[in-house]
Amino acid sequence: MAFAKFPAELQSLIADLPDGSSHLLLETAGTSTSWLAIRYVAAVLKQASPVIIVTWLRSSNFWRQELRKAANIDSDELSKSNKLAIHDDPSLTSAEGLSKWAKELTTLLSSDQQYQNAVLVLDSPDIVLGTVSISADSLLAIVIGLRAVVRSTIILTASDLFSLEANSQTPLRTQQQQFLMTLGHQANLVLSTRVLDTGHAKDVSGVLMISHGGQAAERQTGSDSEYLYQVENNRATSVWKRGADR
């Protein structure tokens, strides 16, 4: 695997996905959490649970490629054995199309026994708020409906609230904040990435902060800490504590 260095306590947090749990991965304009999502997918597949990736922002090809390059996972083979499914562009055109799609997926997941232990990865559902006329509440209801029928959910979403719309409370920003903060309240663990406060550096891609979500479990060791990380061109990702040796 192309993971140069990954802290053990972080790995155990990622692998710990009890029934009904939800982890929130936050990215900003300068950072991405897809490398972390790959890490989740690899951990879940190792536990022999099926993974369903639903992506709004990136294409299914992106995920296939990244899975192969970063974690050496052959997505085509896993798709044939129903261990991995990647849905992209789920009816981005209308709110009705979206709820129809969500209903179909919910029925599929709840009817089939093999999906009982499934982990759902939602890649940037917040895109929908800007492209379809749908309220944050309706979208959150769709997410909750999907969460109810799987074991655990990993949600990737943007957390830029300040720089993109210079402090004007537009309706879209209100919706975005509703969506982001509510997901934070529903999450067990929040993993957020941001760019370095001190500017750009050649050997650091960004800061990864692990914090408790609103529904944090009672004891989680390794949370409430901050790491630095770097994603290399060959997808080798190292994560280390501030000040520690790489």
């Binding site: 929040v190 941001r194 409430d224």
Partner: peptide, 19 residues
């Protein structure tokens, strides 16, 4: 948290204690 006004900081350290 959000008070810091920094993009990407939504939940600060020391938040959401279950104890």
């Amino acid at each position: 948290g959000l008070e810091t006004g920094v993009d990407g900081v939504v939940v600060s350290a020391g938040s959401n204690s279950a104890v």
